[in-house]
């Protein structure tokens, strides 16, 4: 699937493949009994980010520029990094063992005490909002910052030159009609 996303040149198809990938991840999380993560993945990964990708595609061209040749250096770097990561996974403890670090550190404390501490059945909510409250506040600030950044980038009115249509001569009144037509055809090409 990831190979298909990289190979496909049609950006609309790539966006849809991303959405399907997210939905499959959400199904995988559900199988692993991680309801909160599955809900987030389905809502954010498959839903909102697909909508945002489509909103951007409405502004950009649909097909990727073909790039000539292969970047051998990039391929080598990616290959070595992947090999190192796979080598690192050999040192990880076996999945689901009771004496894994994840099972003996703070996990048991949360599992044993979260209900008596706050009377909240959903442990994930208890950990997120109360034990790790400052982390969650940081996440909320990250979201706000992202919104402010998009606002800062897109609240400037676009200039004519950014649209990729540079007038060759200063436009006169009698050329106004011609130029309008050229613009509309350019718009169609974009779509």
């Amino acid at each position: 699937m990831a190979v298909a996303i990289v190979r496909v040149r049609d950006l609309f198809a790539a966006g849809m493949l991303f959405a399907i990938y997210s939905l499959l991840s959400a199904a995988l999380f559900t199988v692993l009994d991680a309801g909160d993560v599955a809900l987030t993945e389905a809502a954010v990964g498959a839903g909102i980010s697909t909508i945002l990708v489509l909103a951007v595609l409405a502004l950009a061209r649909r097909f990727e520029h073909p790039t000539g040749g292969h970047n051998l250096l990039a391929l080598t770097v990616v290959f070595i990094t992947g090999a190192v990561l796979i080598y690192a996974t050999l040192d990880l403890p076996e999945f689901g063992q009771p004496d894994n670090p994840a099972q003996v550190h703070v996990g048991p404390h949360y599992i044993e005490n979260s209900y008596t501490d706050m009377g909240v059945p959903n442990m994930v909510a208890a950990v997120l909002a109360s034990y790790r409250s400052i982390d969650t506040m940081g996440e909320a600030f990250v979201i706000l910052t992202a919104g402010i950044a998009v606002f800062a980038l897109l609240s400037v009115r676009p200039r004519r030159r950014q649209a990729g249509i540079v007038p060759r001569r200063p436009p006169r009144n009698d050329e106004e009609e011609d130029e309008k037509e050229a613009d509309t055809t350019g718009e169609k090409d974009n779509e």
Binding site: I51, A58, I143, F151
Partner: peptide, 27 residues
Amino acid sequence: TVVMLIYTMFARRKSEWEAVLKDGDDR
């Protein structure tokens, strides 16, 4: 509200561009 805001920004961009292309004002 941030998700709505980001969507609004992107969705409005296209009409802004069309308006600029139509007016032809090069500011």
